[in-house]
Design a binder for these strands. Structure first.
Lengths: 243, 243
DNA sequence: GAGTGGTCTAGACCACACG
DNA sequence: GTGTGGTCTAGACCACTCC
């Protein structure tokens, strides 16, 4: 059963993407949407909150909800988007080459921090191409506890769709860290780097809905092909979330 | 008037930071919190939503709200945090040197995209030091329409606190883009780069609550000093926000 | 079954924008 | 004043977890 507010936000998102509402347009007011969808106003508000946090609309008190220019938000590697999802969205004509697929333990510097029952993992190393150029080397450690085995075919495709659709895992949140580091010769060679040995390194820890850690990923990007786009709303003092 | 749910989320955040609730602990259940704060359960839920999106807790259906390890989320350049805010939080012993402060128009490639009434801006170029080492060069274009003038002293300090506290501007959201690019000799010199001319470039467009664009920033970071940490919750298909 | 969070409602009052 | 979004309530039912 999918919640009403999610159906409504999906519907409104689609309408915005189909340009039924243009950038700068106001959506119908909350009471009107409530009547149109035959739900209470609170339910409409929950739907609009989804659009807000996606950066699709901005609510203006006393005025209405205005459609934002989503083209400025495109291509978010943020939000745990994955190479294959991006590929579909962006028609990057991307391919994947599996360089390694084997059993391994989580790197110690990670497992030390996490207090796990088991560090036994599957290690996958993949080279990602866009238009026949290598652009990313991914290394994944996936806990066997949640994903007992991974085939070459699955590694070739989208691991996330395997995890979510076939295994029913609920991937929920991740922390990621972006730095720029010198790469060793192996990576330099794999990415065919010239003039530099610097790569953009994205390290992510991914967790399931029940807060269990299940995947560690290190992505090394060719610096000239790397782009990270983010949409952020300012956290206020009152929200207590200055961090 | 600050909303109850914001006060409650601020209070809970403080309690978590003061270790009254430890990592792995469960918060009191929603009905109990509702009774404790003398509010309805919905209000408690709104407060907990704030903690959720900040990555401070994770809600587990049927179980409760568990405190997450926030140290893995530290140092967010995300969320429009600014150099000075980071400085306070991280004790980076940072200083700022204003290299330039003058009137200028927004760069054409930006103003072309934005359909503005006026592109007349104040241009500020600043070099940021941490422990006496240059680590970032910031260039800001701030629309005169919203900030008529900026003094050297203000440029030396936190522009955001000037905008928000003194001018009462409501900064609300931003889009930012991170890339790695070759720097010209001037930047190489300012950042005292050795062995490389690559810098991490963060370009941001910042907007007010009423959706008006008001600031464009280009930050160039020394690659070996750059670090970006992000906490992201996965957007689902049903939310309609796959992007 | 009891307790948890997830969704939804119908109604209320407030703050803000605009004419 | 009218209409907008922002907050809050009291109660309901559902889905999930754990005993």
């Amino acid at each position: 059963m999918v919640a009403k507010y999610l159906k409504i936000s999906a519907d409104l998102t689609e309408q915005i993407q189909q340009k039924k509402y243009h950038v700068g347009d106001f959506l119908p007011s909350e009471p009107i949407l409530a009547k149109k969808y035959c739900v209470s106003r609170e339910t409409i508000r929950r739907a609009l909150d989804e659009l807000m946090s996606a950066g699709l609309i901005q609510k203006l008190q006393g005025k209405g909800s205005v459609v934002l220019d989503v083209t400025r938000i495109a291509f978010p590697i943020s939000n745990i988007a994955t190479f294959n999802e991006l590929n579909v969205q962006e028609q990057m004509h991307a391919t994947t080459k599996v360089l390694s697929l084997m059993d391994a333990n989580l790197p110690l510097n990670i497992s030390n921090k996490l207090s796990l029952t088991s560090t036994s993992s599957t290690y996958v190393k993949r080279l990602r191409f866009s238009k026949h150029e290598p652009i990313v080397v991914d290394e994944d450690y996936i806990l066997k506890q949640y994903v007992p085995s991974i085939s070459i075919n699955q590694a070739q495709g989208s691991l996330y769709s395997y995890f979510e659709k076939e295994l029913g895992l609920n991937i929920d949140y991740a922390t990621k860290e972006i730095t720029v580091e010198a790469a060793d010769n192996k990576i330099v060679n794999e990415l065919q780097l010239k003039d530099t040995n610097l790569v953009v390194v994205v390290r992510s820890l991914t967790y399931l809905k029940d807060t269990s850690f299940f995947q560690y990923t290190i992505s090394r990007h060719r610096p000239d092909k790397f782009k990270f786009v983010d949409f952020a709303r300012r956290k206020t003092k009152h929200g207590g979330i200055v961090l």
